[in-house]
């Protein structure tokens, strides 16, 4: 996909996110909207992956979502990549759905390789997959996404140490660096300090994407990150995003972390998210 198509897809994914969360009056729109451009870039441009879906992910790039609460963006991107029918997005968080509140393998939803939701576990799982790819001489990459507040979970730092020690230079971990978490700004809840220095002191290569909601900036940052793989160190992207990006009234605070828009708010959001081209709502 070219830049304009990627931008259009990101807008469509944002429409999916607000409609899914509105439809069940439950879910997490804020972080989903913030990570939309990154996930669209990964699934529609950067990753080599097969929507026919093979759990083992041999000879393809593999993505793990650690901050599982942003399942709306994950599901939308998977559906629109062809992993499962787009119409299934309407079942999100409803009874008998494969689209659980947090991603799960239990219902066999194509594209999901691990359950996530209880925070702090995804980097470990991604490290296991990256280790397996090394054992198999598989040159493809492992991508993972974690929240910034999520880094308060100690298991992440175990994984960060592990990945450096085992020279997992086939792994790119993005931190959704929006500075927000449920109880407020991360700097007030539990300061993360200098994340760049922290990752570097653990012997990772660290890049920053300053405009994590600008598709061109995301693409450029990802290309740079890929160029750093295979050089003995795992790669971290500090992805600066805005929670709620694309929907004006959801931006600028943590308040839309985990609540759903009303009918009137949905209308405003959809007015702001205007799509072009042939894609359309589910």
């Amino acid at each position: 996909m070219e830049l304009q198509e990627l931008k259009a897809m990101a807008t469509q994914v944002r429409r999916d996110i607000v409609r899914m969360v509105h439809g069940v009056q439950s879910g997490h729109p804020g972080g989903s909207l913030g990570c939309t451009d990154y996930l669209v870039a990964l699934y529609f441009k950067v990753m080599q992956h097969d929507p026919a879906f093979h759990m083992e992910g041999k000879n393809e790039d593999v993505f793990f979502l650690s901050n599982g609460h942003i399942s709306p963006v994950f599901y939308s991107v998977l559906a629109r990549s062809g992993y499962f029918p787009v119409s299934e997005l309407a079942t999100f968080r409803k009874i008998d759905s494969r689209l659980q509140g947090h991603p799960a393998t239990h219902e066999h939803l194509p594209g999901v390789r691990i359950a996530s939701g209880s925070l702090g576990q995804g980097l470990s799982v991604a490290s296991g997959m990256a280790t397996a790819k090394k054992m198999n001489n598989d040159q493809h990459l492992v991508y993972a996404l974690t929240g910034d507040g999520e880094l308060q979970e100690g298991q992440n730092w175990e994984a960060i140490m592990f990945a450096a020690h085992h020279k997992l230079d086939n792994m790119i971990v993005a931190v959704d660096y929006n500075g927000q978490q449920i109880d407020g700004a991360t700097k007030n809840v539990m300061s993360l300090g200098d994340l760049k220095a922290k990752f570097e002191s653990f012997d990772w290569t660290v890049l920053t994407i300053e405009q994590g909601n600008d598709m061109q900036a995301v693409l450029t940052g990802l290309e740079e990150a890929k160029a750093h793989t295979g050089k003995g160190k795992p790669v971290c992207i500090l992805l600066k995003t805005e929670m709620g990006a694309g929907v004006s009234f959801m931006m600028g605070s943590h308040e839309w972390h985990g609540i759903a828009p009303s009918d009137a708010q949905l209308d405003i959001a959809l007015t702001e998210l205007v799509t072009t081209g042939t894609i359309g709502d589910y």
Partner: peptide
Amino acid sequence: PERFVQCGIAEANMIGVAAGLATAGKIP
């Protein structure tokens, strides 16, 4: 030695790494 993974004193991570290895088809 190529099939041995030392995780250090970090059991939570070890379980996650094992889950990732199993996802890839290994038997950890």
